[in-house]
């Protein structure tokens, strides 16, 4: 039986206590702030652990890291200036996220996550239900547009407005009018579309979900038999469409007990909010993934729930 919105999270809080009901959320906020902090530690404190910003950076003055969407745009814009360092940097980032979950970037690193989470929270508090219906595959078109634009203009055109790099760069080097872009994303998520930016449009999220399609670190649902259909995880999940395949719906179809979609951001909100402890982080090795029904089956499970939803 679905929990009413105003009682969202009450059960988890009663069952697991404050820390238990918010541990992943707290850990993520610490990670997000710490990453910005590490970038600022150099210029402010003279301790150079991370230099640069998320677009590309230097760890301990030796390890290069390059943002995949920046690299993709460089390729599309004519591949000028791609060096061995650039390729090593993008490989380090891509391999890391291919293992821990591509969109773990979205939930644990991206500074815009704090903005859109705040919008989602306020949306729940204010009881705003109306949402514009934007297909969640629009992000793939956005990614296509980003690449086409780089080809057409011969420059990293999307980086002129990319809210993610702009927010992060702004926090570290100076924002200018970049705050207006942040406010726009917040207002869009709050008033126009639920999870509108991160869950539907952001091309970086699309690229990271592709990178992490077969990642190993996953939200497992081994305890899914305990699920009592309270639906609270659907309310807090930034990509609720991907949950049914891991829950009873997937169990019926013989799917592995884990969220296998690349869209999962590994944010852990489902684990926090669940009073029955259905979810827990774990590993999904390729062997287990292969043992389950084909990917097509997984897709069908998602679609069927969508039909049942209204």
């Amino acid at each position: 039986m679905a929990t009413p919105l105003e009682e969202l999270g009450h059960d988890a809080l009663a069952q697991k206590g404050w820390l238990g009901a918010y541990k992943w959320l707290i850990a993520r906020r610490i990670a997000q702030v710490a990453i910005i902090g590490l970038f600022l530690l150099g210029p402010l404190g003279g301790v150079w652990i991370l230099k640069g910003n998320l677009s590309s950076s230097l760890l301990l003055d030796t390890v290069p890291m390059v943002e995949p969407i920046t690299f993709l745009q460089m390729l599309a814009a004519g591949a000028a200036g791609i060096t061995t360092t650039t390729i090593i940097g993008v490989l380090i980032v891509a391999v890391f996220y291919a293992l821990v979950g591509g969109r773990a970037y979205c939930a644990w690193v991206c500074p815009v996550n704090m903005v859109t989470d705040a919008a989602a929270w306020l949306r729940r508090k204010l009881g705003i239900k109306s949402t514009s219906k934007i297909p969640d595959w629009a992000r793939w078109w956005m990614l296509g547009a980003v690449i086409v634009l780089a080809m057409a203009t011969g420059s990293l055109a999307y980086e002129l407005v990319n809210p993610v790099s702009m927010t992060h760069r702004g926090l570290i080097y100076g924002m200018g009018a970049g705050w207006a872009v942040i406010v726009a994303v917040f207002a869009y998520d709050l008033l126009i579309a639920k999870h509108g930016w991160c869950g539907h449009l952001c091309p970086m999220g699309a690229l990271y979900s592709a990178i992490g399609s077969y990642s190993v670190v996953r939200m497992r649902s081994d305890n899914r038999a305990a699920c009592d259909d309270c639906m609270e995880c659907f309310e807090v999940c930034p990509e609720p469409r991907i949950l049914p395949a891991a829950l009873k719906q997937g169990q019926k179809q013989g799917l592995p007990p884990a969220v296998l979609s690349g869209l999962c951001t590994n944010c852990g909100r489902c684990a926090d909010i669940c009073s029955k402890d259905v979810f827990a982080f774990g590993l999904v090795l390729p062997r287990e993934r292969m043992a389950g029904p084909s990917r097509e089956g997984a897709g069908r499970a998602e679609d069927e729930t969508l039909k049942q939803a209204p």
Binding site: P43, S55, E67, M74, G81, S155, L156, S165, R169
Partner: peptide, 19 residues
């Protein structure tokens, strides 16, 4: 690099600013 190429090669990371 010349401006045209610079705009396709610079990642806007600011490491030069720091250095």
């Amino acid at each position: 690099l010349e401006e045209e190429k610079f705009l396709s090669a610079c990642t806007r990371c600011g490491i030069c600013v720091r250095d």
